[in-house]
């Protein structure tokens, strides 16, 4: 937050991805499933590359030890996770508006689109925050954080695509769309409920 670099980097990365995807599919009418899949891939890599910065920056600037001394682990986790959720929601909202504009995709069920996006962002931010903390003290921390976060988030992407494709008109709400939204909320709750405990275990090691 101090330098706003995460927000700027995340948004720039996502915007470039959106332009690249839109350019690659020039003059092609994309189905809801393809639009949802592309959007989630962009979100995944944007989150995996920018969100772990919250912990990596603390280690690089040498302020992590001070945090360890003065703050309780749960407070540190919630501070970082809430900031990452905010960053992810802002980036994803701007990215989605851009993407839908470029691809001219219609959104027949906007509430499901919004719910999938928001719950997905919370889940992404929770899991990536933890991955950032786990990788923060390693030698090649930036690459490692992304390498351990991406496979963990692939199931989330699968659920997210399921919900978003329904909101974009591919598939009925009853045949998996609402179940995907519930799955995303469940993933978010599970990550944020167990996160502080797992984080506290590694933070002072």
């Amino acid at each position: 937050m101090r330098s706003m670099s995460g927000l700027v980097t995340g948004f720039l990365f996502s915007a470039v991805t959106v332009f690249a995807i839109s350019f690659a599919s020039l003059n092609t009418k994309l189905s809801g499933t393809v639009v949802a899949g592309m959007l989630w891939v962009a979100l995944l890599f944007s989150a995996a590359s920018s969100l772990p910065r919250t912990f990596l920056a603390e280690e690089e600037m040498g302020t992590a030890d001070l945090l360890r001394l003065v703050a309780r682990p749960h407070a540190v986790f919630w501070g970082k996770a809430l900031f990452n959720i905010f960053q992810c929601v802002v980036t994803s909202t701007l990215l989605s508006i851009l993407y839908l504009g470029f691809t001219s995709a219609a959104v027949p069920i906007p509430w499901l689109f919004g719910l999938s996006l928001f719950a997905g962002c919370v889940s992404l931010a929770g899991a990536v925050t933890l991955c950032g903390a786990i990788a923060a003290q390693a030698a090649n921390r930036a690459m490692l954080a992304a390498a351990i976060a991406v496979p963990l988030l692939l199931p989330l992407v699968a659920i997210g695509v399921g919900g978003m494709r329904t909101s974009l008109g591919d598939g009925a709400l009853s045949s998996g769309g609402s179940a995907s939204a519930i799955g995303l909320i469940g993933y978010a709750v599970a990550t944020l409920a167990t996160g502080p405990y797992i984080f506290a275990a590694v933070w002072k090691t």
Binding site: C131, I148, L152
Partner: peptide, 23 residues
């Protein structure tokens, strides 16, 4: 990959265990 990235045994144990539980 995470285990290979840590040299200190205590950190290796704690961080890889955390990832194992998270996964």
């Amino acid at each position: 990959a995470l285990r290979f990235a840590y040299v200190d045994p205590a950190k290796k144990a704690a961080h890889s265990a955390a990832y194992g539980l998270l996964a």
